[in-house]
Amino acid sequence: MKPVDFRYSRPGTIPEAIELLNEGAGGAKIMAGGQSLGPMLNLRLAQPEQIVDITAIPALTMVTEERDAVVFGACITHAAFEDGRVPDPANGFLRRVAGGIAYRAVRNRGTIGGSLVHADPAADWITTLTALDAELIVATAQGERRVALEAFMMMAFGVHLDDGEFLAGIRIRKFSPAARFGYYKFCRKRGEFAEAMAAVVIDPALNIYRGVIGATQSRPLVLDDIRDLLRGGGESSAPNGAALARARDRVADLGIDDDPITDAMHGNAFARALEQVIA
């Protein structure tokens, strides 16, 4: 199948892009690498009147190092993360996650911002960056607004963006050298949608003990403080196995999917991610 016809423009600045969005009045759609949008266009599930290609806006492919964080332009590709062409404030975790997204030819065009706005619950960045408590920088007519990723995604394919706004950047804090990251995803076929996924981030220096369960039917589930589930791991005398089993059961019992088998998978994915940080 081929897409419906649409207008296309490639603005060079953020204000131009916003103007185009406002002119489009809801019929305009932002495109970066187009790797999620492309199939939807081809299937005619997405039928925009106008595509605003934001890849020629220099600011969106820039990396800005701040004292305690790194800000990534929304149009930076997965491959750039995978190849280590950008700094990794999460001690190599971003690189690892990026390398597991879809396939190399997709990663060469697919972008971190595009993935977040597409908000497929089974996508890698949604879950892992929620675990890192990433902050999103949204370009608006007034300038910008900032929103935590956790509050940005509201349901499958549903994010908190108004018609005249788009995602411009992602701010990820610098984790301490002692931070530990766990990520596990289960896919039936390599590179395809995850059936279950979970991420765990532990950084005692920053007082972060977060767990996230992704690949739900909706937005990821955030476990703000999983310290009680860590007991038994690490320095404690209780065996890791017991801690993991407890974590697994606790997540499985949440009833995320109203299906005991899928719920058990969520628990197992969480336990495997947890295992990586307490092993």
Partner: peptide
Amino acid sequence: ASTFMDYIIPGPCE
């Protein structure tokens, strides 16, 4: 199953 995302044929890793 209307796409290769839904209809899975084995790839090199499978």
